[in-house]
């Protein structure tokens, strides 16, 4: 079985360099699958993506995450998910997906003037 992994990068990375090279990982190789790690820094907050790591199975991924990502008291809870189960939007579609929202300022609550009579908003 061949697993195709393509890692995408977001944010400030220019489009021409976004989207990593496609690497073919054969299951014959001794490589362990990649896992994405989410950490909750304290009770009541959301789990946030902090990075990725390699592990043979889910429990090992959690232990690895504990050792790699929480050794300086970064968290109180860990989620891991195998990277291949994450589906991402295609950076090539960014224009059609996100730019149309740019001129629709009426979607922000601040666009509307509130009557003085309305309290507690």
């Amino acid at each position: 079985m061949n697993i195709q992994i393509r890692k995408f990068y977001y944010g400030d990375i220019p489009e021409e360099t976004a989207g990593g090279p496609i690497t073919n990982v054969s299951s014959d190789e001794k490589a362990w699958p990649l896992w994405e790690v989410f950490i909750r820094s304290k009770q009541g907050l959301d789990h946030k993506h902090v990075g990725s790591l390699h592990a043979a199975d889910a429990s090992m991924a959690i232990e690895n995450a504990r050792d790699v990502y929480t050794r300086r008291q970064e968290g109180v809870s860990i989620w891991v998910v195998e990277s291949k189960f994450i589906h991402a939007s295609d950076p090539a579609d960014a224009e059609s997906l996100y730019e149309p929202a740019a001129d629709k300022i009426y979607r922000h609550p601040t666009f509307y003037d509130l009557p003085d009579a309305v309290k507690h908003m």
Partner: peptide
């Protein structure tokens, strides 16, 4: 053997 376990054993 791998980075993650290197950190585990040194922890």
């Amino acid at each position: 053997p791998i980075l993650e376990q290197d950190i585990a054993i040194t922890n």
